[in-house]
Write a protein that binds this DNA or RNA. Structure first.
Lengths: 203, 203
DNA sequence: CACTAAAACGGAGGCGCCTCCGTTTATTAC
DNA sequence: GTAATAAACGGAGGCGCCTCCGTTTTAGTG
């Protein structure tokens, strides 16, 4: 066990050892393309296609991500971070209830991706169990921020909290395998939102 | 849903629809070879190798077993059955305590195989959850038979029952991934057996 | 026995996985 | 700038997965 700089639980922070410029470029490119391809073709998408579309050789992909799961994990983390960041941005740009609604829509999309992902990540999860607890903690933190702001401003009713909303959302993504799933989810989120708005300001 | 003859929970019983003679022969051959190859190379063994060794084309393998899991399941069931059958045979051939000990040794070997198997079967298990409850029920039934006989004859102590023994065994196969695992397990089974013999006839 | 339809066979072919290693490129030292 | 060296690249090659379909075998029928 050599003393590493500061990378104890790291995994994303790129400080550890500055990559060569071309390597960093390719790595970033791969993650970006992978996110797109996974979204489009599902979690079993061909890694060779990802390499191809990213304009690198398959060898390069494997050097950066020794297994499919490694690549998947990075994509997953990246998207979770984007989702959390969106909470702050939406809050700055919209009334608190609208911000919450839009964020929930994104959340539902995000979950759809994660579906197949969870299966594929099971292997990593046994090794690296901080993955989910980490990210799900941060995600629900983001939700809490939005809900509390909306309650404080009186744009949604005051007798609910973030965990209620999360609970309600969980019903929505129970079976996201049908083709019409995305539309239905959107409608359900709106429905939930109307419920939340109903009686706003009373709490 | 057409009315099938009698194949409601079937899966092994070959009555459903008599296969053509050559088909039946190939199928049996494949299962036999698969059991050997899985034991030797692990659960991820090449299906093409199995077909090759069985002397059939890869197409034939896939016709009989559309997915790897189907083949694995049949092998699993077959071995569970052999294990159960062994209980009766051993009981007829050996003193009751020896029969129990030998059966436990076989049980441990069997579990070793099942290890990798469980992971691979997870897919089927969601669909076909009777698989484990089925077989594990039958296996523990076999164990009960042996334990009760040995207790009745006084070759092992009387203050234990089958579930105690199963419990004790479960400690043995906790981490069967090391190279010395098999030997260690054998020693542990002997140890357990000595404990069971100690004070025999008092209960 | 011969004939036929249905059943089963088997392997080529297309694709994906992953490794290995000769070639190229970035960085560092001068 | 040039040279040297470590880092990174990329794709050929070997193997496995699975499908598809032309060929062979079996089980009936007369």
């Amino acid at each position: 066990m050599a003393a590493e700089p500061s990378a104890i639980t790291e995994a994303k922070v790129e400080e550890a050892k500055p990559l060569r410029a071309d390597a960093q470029r390719n790595r970033d490119r791969l993650v970006e393309v992978a996110a797109a391809v996974f979204a489009e073709r599902g979690i079993d998408a061909s890694l060779e296609e990802i390499a191809r579309r990213a304009g690198v050789g398959i060898g390069t992909l494997y050097r950066h991500f020794p297994t499919r799961e490694h690549l998947v994990e990075v994509v997953y983390r990246r998207e979770a971070e984007a989702l959390c960041a969106a909470a702050g941005e939406l809050a700055g740009k919209h009334p608190s209830d609208v911000a919450l609604e839009q964020w929930m829509q994104r959340f539902v999309d995000y979950i759809a991706t994660k579906r197949g992902l969870a299966t594929s990540l099971r292997i990593l999860l046994t090794t690296n169990s901080t993955l989910f607890s980490d990210t799900s903690g941060r995600v629900s933190q983001a939700l809490r921020q939005l809900v509390e702001a909306a309650v404080a401003e009186g744009t949604i009713r005051g007798d609910v909290d973030a965990s209620d909303v999360l609970h309600a959302l969980s019903g929505i993504y129970s079976a996201p395998d049908t083709p019409q799933w995305r539309d239905r989810s959107r409608r359900l989120v709106s429905l939930l939102m109307d419920g939340l708005r109903f009686g706003a300001g009373k709490g």
